[in-house]
Design a binder for these strands. Structure first.
Lengths: 223, 223
DNA sequence: TCTCTATGAATGAACG
DNA sequence: CGTTCATTCATAGAGA
């Protein structure tokens, strides 16, 4: 559904300042649309989770999966990535785990911690301790740089200055979400990735409590 | 998926009337949560899609019951991807200014400088500090590259600029990688950034998209 | 439309 | 640690 196309980005969300409070405004229509999409997503994810579950029951599919993705990247991944890769690239799962750990607020992972993390992530793909270390360094650094918006988001035009998000979101983003992510607060989209494992309740290390599980549960995905 | 139920729609979104406009206002907090939820699904679906793909590769599993559970929902909804991501494009004037500044030789514009530049350029069109920052980064990098190429070896393909690469490619490898790549080339799965379309082998989407940056796109997948 | 190219942006790694 | 570099991904725009 050409959601944005129909409504037009600019109409979709607007900043609304009132009594010093800034929020996003959505029309009923828009809200409705949003809800529909979320529900759709939820439903699908649920089904997929089901699928995964039943599969895992038969095999340890994860192994195959990664074996496939890893050893046979040509068929499994983007397809033009046959060439040697120079730098580490976290798999979604790895990323998710990293983010979870990061969000747990346990500052800088100690050397020991990094070792642990690395070995755990190794189950989901190639990785080294250095990679983990760097990741945390970068994550923190870039997370910090999120504040530099000097009330500059005044520019009118059709392109609202969405402010400087450190990562993922593009400043001139046109899409709904970009606008959603209010100028000041940048949101890291990767930071909130949830994984199949969580959904399915698979064994996972960085579990216990984490904000994302909550979200997932809110969706009722896990049932 | 009982998003509304869990939170209560009215609690989540509230009507706000102002200047005769009626809409629903979300607090930053709410928005943040919404985003997380969306992202969660996005990521989940992506991963599941990967799963599915590799599964398909090993048709051992294709027989189970996901022909219904899995394939249907995705393939059915995949067709609705919304492509909306847009990126900043400097206006001729902005470009001109940027080039001038760049030519003044002042290496890296400090953060302060960037702010100034940004606000100046903002007079000529939408722009953010990040845009400025990126521009300089790219400008420098590409300028350098060009220089290298023009002065480099005649043929650059067989073993392109070892000098440059040598130091860049160091720590990727690890036991894991070495085991797999046999030390030859550490080529490994990199497609983690792919979106569902790519993972599943969707090919009809008009253009590429930004799977991990554009929530809406992924979100829209299921719309 | 499809392809190709220039370039904005993301990010792992390195540097001071 | 904060910055900067190098490399890659994705896209807007030009050309066929």
């Amino acid at each position: 559904m050409e959601w944005e196309n129909q409504h037009g980005e600019e109409e979709y969300l607007q900043y609304q300042i009132q009594n010093g409070v800034c929020g996003k405004v959505m029309s009923d229509e828009q809200v409705e649309e949003l809800k529909k999409q979320i529900v759709a997503y939820s439903a699908i994810s649920e089904q997929l989770a089901e699928l995964h579950k039943s599969m895992s029951a038969h095999h340890d599919f994860t192994g195959i999966r990664f074996g496939n993705l890893y050893c046979d990247p040509i068929s499994a991944s983007v397809g033009h990535k046959i060439t040697a890769r120079q730098r580490w690239t976290p798999t979604p799962l790895q990323l998710q785990i990293l983010e979870n750990i990061y969000d747990q607020g346990t500052g800088t992972p100690s050397k020991q911690k990094i070792k642990e993390i690395a070995s755990e992530l190794a189950q989901h793909g190639p990785i080294s301790e250095t990679n983990v270390y760097n990741w945390f360094q970068n994550r923190r650094a870039r997370s910090k740089r999120k504040f530099q918006v000097s009330t500059g988001s005044v520019n009118a035009e059709s392109e609202p200055d969405v402010s400087t998000k450190e990562k993922k979101t593009k400043p001139v983003g046109l899409d709904f979400i970009d606008n959603f992510s209010h100028g000041v607060e940048s949101f890291y989209f990767q930071g909130t990735e949830s994984g199949i494992d969580q959904l399915i309740g698979k064994e996972e290390s960085s579990r216990g409590y984490d904000p994302y599980n909550n979200l997932v549960e809110q969706f009722g995905l896990l049932g």
